[in-house]
Amino acid sequence: MSGVDLPGAIRLVRANNVRALDPAPAMFEGMLRGWEQQQRSRLLARKTINDRLSLVRRFAEFTGTYPWDWTPEDVEAYFATRLSRGEVVWSTVRGQQGDLEMFCAFIADRRYGWAKACLEEFGRAPVQVCHDWNTAQHVAEFEGRPGRRAFTYEELQTFFDAADDRVEQIRKKGRKGVLAAWRDSVLVKQFYAYGTRRRETSMLDLSDLRHNPRAPHYGRLGALQIRYGKASRGSPPKRRTVLTVPEVDWIVPVIQEWVEEVRCGFSPGRHPALWVSERCGRLGVRRLDEVFAAIREHADLPAELDLHCLRHTYITHLVEFGYPERFVQEQVGHAYASTTALYTWVSDEYRNRLIEDALQRRLERGGGGTLMPQ
């Protein structure tokens, strides 16, 4: 087994003929380099790998020991401390415990040689310290922040009005930033009208505005091509096409005006980005959050609403408009319908409408107003 060249194996990371002056930290750093190589061979994203390495380093710093001395009690103490400080939410804890479990499985796997080397060097070998009885289990369908929700119709209108009002206020005061405020107003409306994620929106190019042959009256705004959808398990970014639905076709002239009349004011030259910054570059993800926060504050809306809530609202409204589940799922790029369901908050108004329709159908059939058991 020791001769197999698996990505991350100790023989590919550490030289056999070199002995470190301080073997413990050298062994630990070698483990991290080996694990990094193993994950890179799986084509995982750089951010995913870096986040996992950072977690292992923080855990080691918290315990004050190295992996061959870790115990299940260390896992309990570490995550109990983080939860007590309010540093993480449930889903984050479960994800980090899974990452720590993967690292322990890697260094304890005899095919990579780390366990054998630790036993020879320190007299102790690393073992798995994450088990069913000391880690969080996935028992709830929704593990996000309870406060996260969709906008109400009134909140959504207030938010859009505030975005437009910022433009007028800056214009009246004769200050710089009218074009940026205009861009921001159109930008947040596009977030809602197509239900896009932050990176998907940031990476949009002018060429991603597509015609829909079945809706020629929308021109080049009949659909939005998403080329940088959320990847999973080392896959490249997923692609999808989001169709413009009639209920939000007010977005068509809004974006057309931005593309044809306003965007050129930033002097973007040949830059392909749909959303350009004041420095003629692509608008970054962090800047998108800042734009949303500024408009939310101007609208005096609750801080629990974040940019992703516009996507929740889009999904909810598609359901309320009566679109089939499969259509909604494909519009937002979810692999499973159950994921789409978690994002959906169907309003009381919509449910009452369904009840009224059901009662009307029953009355038309000549049935009574009450269902009685047979």
Rank of each mutant, 00 (worst) to 15 (best):
R57L: 07
V56Y: 04
D51H: 11
R40P: 01
A26V: 05
A20W: 07
V18C: 06
G30R: 05
V13D: 00
R19A: 10
A26E: 10
P25E: 00
E36C: 05
G8S: 03
G8C: 00
R42T: 11
P7I: 04
M31R: 04
R19K: 15
G8F: 05
E29W: 04
R33I: 05
G8H: 09
R42D: 03
V18W: 02
R11I: 09
L21N: 12
V13C: 06
N16Y: 09
R58M: 12
L12P: 00
D22T: 14
M27K: 02
Q37M: 12
L32I: 06
L53A: 02
G8Q: 03
P25Q: 06
E29S: 10
R33F: 02
L21G: 13
R52Y: 12
G8Y: 07
R40N: 10
V4P: 01
V56Q: 09
P23S: 12
S2F: 11
M31T: 02
G34K: 05
R11V: 08
T48N: 10
S54Y: 15
A20I: 02
Q39M: 15
R14M: 13
R19N: 10
E36I: 06
F28S: 03
M31Q: 11
P23F: 04
S41Y: 13
A24R: 15
R14T: 08
L43V: 13
R52I: 06
R52H: 11
G3R: 13
G30I: 03
L6Q: 07
R58F: 09
W35L: 02
R58I: 04
L44K: 13
R58Q: 14
R19C: 01
S54I: 12
N17Q: 12
L21E: 09
N50E: 15
A24C: 01
R58S: 15
R42L: 14
W35V: 01
E36N: 08
R11P: 00
L43G: 08
A45T: 13
M31C: 11
R46L: 13
N17F: 10
R52G: 08
K47S: 14
Q38R: 15
Q38F: 12
D51M: 06
L53K: 05
R19G: 00
V4I: 14
R52V: 06
G34Y: 01
R52D: 04
L21F: 10
R40C: 06
R46I: 13
P25Y: 00
R40Y: 08
E29M: 09
R40L: 09
